[in-house]
Design a protein around this nucleic acid. Structure first.
Lengths: 137, 137
DNA sequence: TATCCAAAAGATAATCATTCTTATTTAGGA
DNA sequence: TCCTAAATAAGAATGATTATCTTTTGGATA
């Protein structure tokens, strides 16, 4: 489970520390794109000695090294995503819920569209849909 | 210019104050989806007495009343958008630049796609593209 | 036009997520 | 096992945002 993660750390020249593993596992296990605070709360049970500053620092370095992604939101609280494959996000208009949305047909549709339609003065690297609406349950 | 804005305020039962007008004009005139701080700096010249708290409060109430929108970002600093029509955003991977991207064909393409393809347990209200990449200049 | 009052603004203190600093610990190579 | 740069812990500092409390004012009413 964490093998992929450990290997990636080594690739990047980062040391494999229990803190990093615990924080990464927290992001993976916590659904709904957790905040730093969610992570701190989650790891408290099994790793009560990990300090708050460490959590922030580890999250930052994992984003920088492309092991996590930040999720764009309208809030001033940062949220993180462990899924690196191409996917989109469903944002609830009423709550803070954010779900992943994977749709290969959609990816193809959009990437085909932008093959022909270039945006002037802009080189596209990635396209994500920000789908806002309401969950039924 | 601000006629639309004044009317909208009245519709919503909000008082038309010089502060609200100045802050709205700042958002409209400042390109690149300004932060509260950008607004404070901008209005300082002509309205040196508007307090910081007022700027935040006005921005919040304008968002709540659908006269402005918040822009989703990966930063903990909020940014605002005065354009209410359906459009997308180009995010620079290297700087904080965010540009609007309007593309009616794209809107049609996507809305057609989601006419057939329903997302289970989710009622779509709005779809925006987050296009990340690099500006040429 | 003057009066009135709820809404809005001003001033500033408080909050809280995040960052920084410094001392201590540790992963992992030699 | 030793060594050292990297990582962590603890807690102070920062900075955007929010809250509080007093004063001012837009605009409805008389």
């Amino acid at each position: 489970m964490t093998h992929f993660f450990r290997e990636k750390l080594k690739e990047r020249g980062l040391k494999v520390t229990p803190q990093r593993v615990a924080i990464y596992e927290a992001i993976v296990n916590l659904k709904n794109h957790p905040t730093a605070e969610n992570v701190i709360e989650y790891i408290k049970t099994n790793h009560p000695n990990i300090s708050v500053g460490t959590v922030y620092k580890v999250l930052d370095s994992l984003v920088e090294n492309e092991l996590l992604k930040k999720v764009k939101t309208e809030k001033d609280i940062m949220r993180y995503d462990a899924i690196l494959s191409n996917h989109h996000h469903l944002y609830c208009i009423e709550t803070e819920r954010i779900e992943d949305y994977e749709d290969e047909n959609l990816n193809v549709l959009i990437s085909n569209y932008f093959k022909n339609k270039k945006i002037k003065n802009f080189k596209v690297q990635d396209i994500k849909l920000q789908i806002t609406g309401k969950f039924n349950k």
